[in-house]
């Protein structure tokens, strides 16, 4: 099993304590698999936990059981895995590139608006307008999923950027990028589906 490989790499630590830690491996793996859907991630989290435990056995006070202590370490490793996958999702996916390209297409090469944004007039009048409301709801539904999630947390649930970052384990910069995209996508969609239509 993979725990043995780790233990054999640290021969001087193959103490009774290290063996006791190894004996908890199966339990920890089950625990990790419940929290992480991805089996490879669960194994990684357990391996990291076992390594950290063997290296840091001196910090184990014996006040709690060994299992409790190991589970405490594992929880942190699981959170690290979740963060890592959220980050990978944020940067890896083709959606992200497509979204970035759609935003770039709104601007000319020199960074200025390609078209002339319309004067939407009196906000109160627009808000009372049923066509505006219908277009707004349609445009919200069309937002890419990740931007929509961040935008909803920010604008509908009134969460701060800090709270959103914590919840989704993303950086503030990442959060602002997604909110910026969401707002630009929404205004573009409203220009096309509401304002242009209302002029015809």
């Amino acid at each position: 099993m993979f725990f043995n490989i780790i233990l054999h790499n640290i021969p001087s630590k193959a103490s009774p304590q290290a063996q006791a830690i190894e004996a908890e491996g199966a339990y920890l793996l089950r625990y990790a698999q419940l929290q992480l859907r991805n089996p490879a991630q669960a194994e990684d989290a357990v391996q990291e936990t076992l390594l950290a435990a063997i290296e840091g056995i001196a910090r184990f006070s014996g006040k709690s059981s060994l299992r409790t202590w190991l589970t405490g370490i594992l929880k942190h490793k699981i959170i690290d895995q979740l963060r890592r996958s959220a980050r990978e999702q944020a940067f890896d996916v083709d959606d992200d590139r497509a979204e970035a390209e759609a935003i770039d297409a709104l601007f000319a090469g020199d960074g200025h608006w390609r078209g002339m944004p319309s004067d939407w007039g009196n906000p109160d009048a627009a808000l009372e307008n049923s066509r505006f409301r219908a277009a707004f709801e349609l445009c919200l539904q069309r937002l890419p999923e990740r931007s929509a999630r961040v935008f909803t947390m920010r604008e509908v649930m009134d969460m701060s950027t800090g709270e959103i970052c914590q919840e989704l384990q993303i950086t503030p910069t990442n959060c602002w990028v997604m909110l910026h995209r969401a707002r630009l996508t929404l205004r573009e969609c409203l220009e096309l589906n509401w304002f242009d239509g209302s002029r015809r």
Binding site: W113, P117, D119, P123, L127, F132, F136, E155, R183, R187
Partner: peptide
């Protein structure tokens, strides 16, 4: 104009 539109977006979602 975009600044005005952003303001309207926020007002619309609150509404």
């Amino acid at each position: 104009r975009v600044e005005q539109q952003f303001g309207l977006l926020r007002a619309a979602i609150r509404r």
